[in-house]
Computed example of a mutant assay.
Amino acid sequence: MMNYTGLDRPKKPGYYLFWKAMFVAICLLGIGFIYAAADFVDYNWRWEQVPQYFWLDKDLEVRSEAEGDLTKIDKTAAGYTLIIQDGGHEEIVNLPPDANIFLVEGDYVYMGDTIAEYRVSKPGILLEATYVTLKVSMLAIVLGIIVGILAGLMRISENPCLRWLSVTYVELIRGSPLLVQIFLWYFVAGSLINAMLDKVGLSAIPALWYGVFALAIFTGAYVAEIVRAGVQSVHRGQSEAARALGLSGQQAMRKVILPQAFRRILPPLAGQFISLIKDSSLLGVIAVRELTKATREVISSSLMSYELWIACTIMYLVLTFALSVAVQYLERRAVR
């Protein structure tokens, strides 16, 4: 007779079924609690209005902002151009080709009159903001990887200047809040850089790019430590064997050490990049309309705080889960 201890003990047939059912019950209990609490405070759920903020598909009315005679309706391949003349003032209204115009030339138009109507089918504000979040995150991840690998290799360099520069960078970045760094990038560095660009007649750099730089530099500091730990975790004998085969130090690092370290640093890198996606929600403070900022704007006009914050959470979960799945795929490929 075998003796089992701890987790090695065989489970009864209904063991896993029971605990899976328990998991589902706990999830349903949590959802039920949210709805019960909302009902207790007389909150009116309006889930049917949420989809329009992801995909807008509705008829829009175009109203006149001036009063006068409709003097001209010009049709081109790009659409319609309406001109409303009121003495010396002229209002020009541009409409898409599929617009349904309710007036004819010569009609008198009052301010607020419905001029035309057309169908709009385009991404909603939350879907556009999700794209901005994804764009910012991916750019910051790529730049962060480059900065992190360079800083990580400098961290283990025998050159004291490179090593001290890396240590200073890592400690400065990890020792200050990301929000403060975003402010420094936008209000300090951004103001100086844009002022210099204006002096030489160049366009200013948008706030989005300062947000990308802030996230990339912040993430790069953590990636540097992950890379350093991964490289140092590879047994020293691997490097010595590579050198014995005639490889230079750089060749040994590129062909022997880094490939082995890569497999070990993938899980912590995934966690860092998932954190970066969530940290992108801070960019709203510098007027970057990412997912969190867009959600706040929609809530301020629709007053659907419960539905929209839940929808916002789900979108972040989709982004982070997709990244997690991608990294797991890379892990499986790396061990082959």
Rank of each mutant, 00 (worst) to 15 (best):
L103V: 10
V104C: 07
G106R: 08
D107L: 02
Y108L: 08
V109S: 08
Y110D: 09
D113W: 11
A116R: 03
A116I: 10
Y118C: 02
R119Q: 11
V120N: 02
S121V: 12
S121Y: 07
G124N: 04
G124E: 09
I125P: 00
E128N: 12
E128Y: 05
E128I: 02
A129H: 13
Y131T: 04
T133R: 00
M138K: 08
L139T: 10
A140I: 07
V142S: 06
V142Q: 02
I145E: 04
I145M: 15
V147W: 02
L150F: 11
G152K: 04
L153G: 04
L153Q: 02
M154W: 14
M154F: 15
M154C: 13
I156K: 01
I156E: 01
I156A: 00
E158R: 12
C161D: 08
L162A: 12
R163H: 08
L165S: 12
V167Q: 15
V167N: 13
E171T: 08
L172F: 15
G175L: 05
V180L: 11
V180G: 00
V180E: 01
V188L: 13
G190P: 00
L192C: 05
L192E: 08
N194S: 06
L197G: 01
D198I: 01
K199V: 07
K199P: 00
L202F: 15
A204M: 10
I205D: 06
I205L: 11
P206R: 11
W209R: 03
Y210E: 04
Y210Q: 06
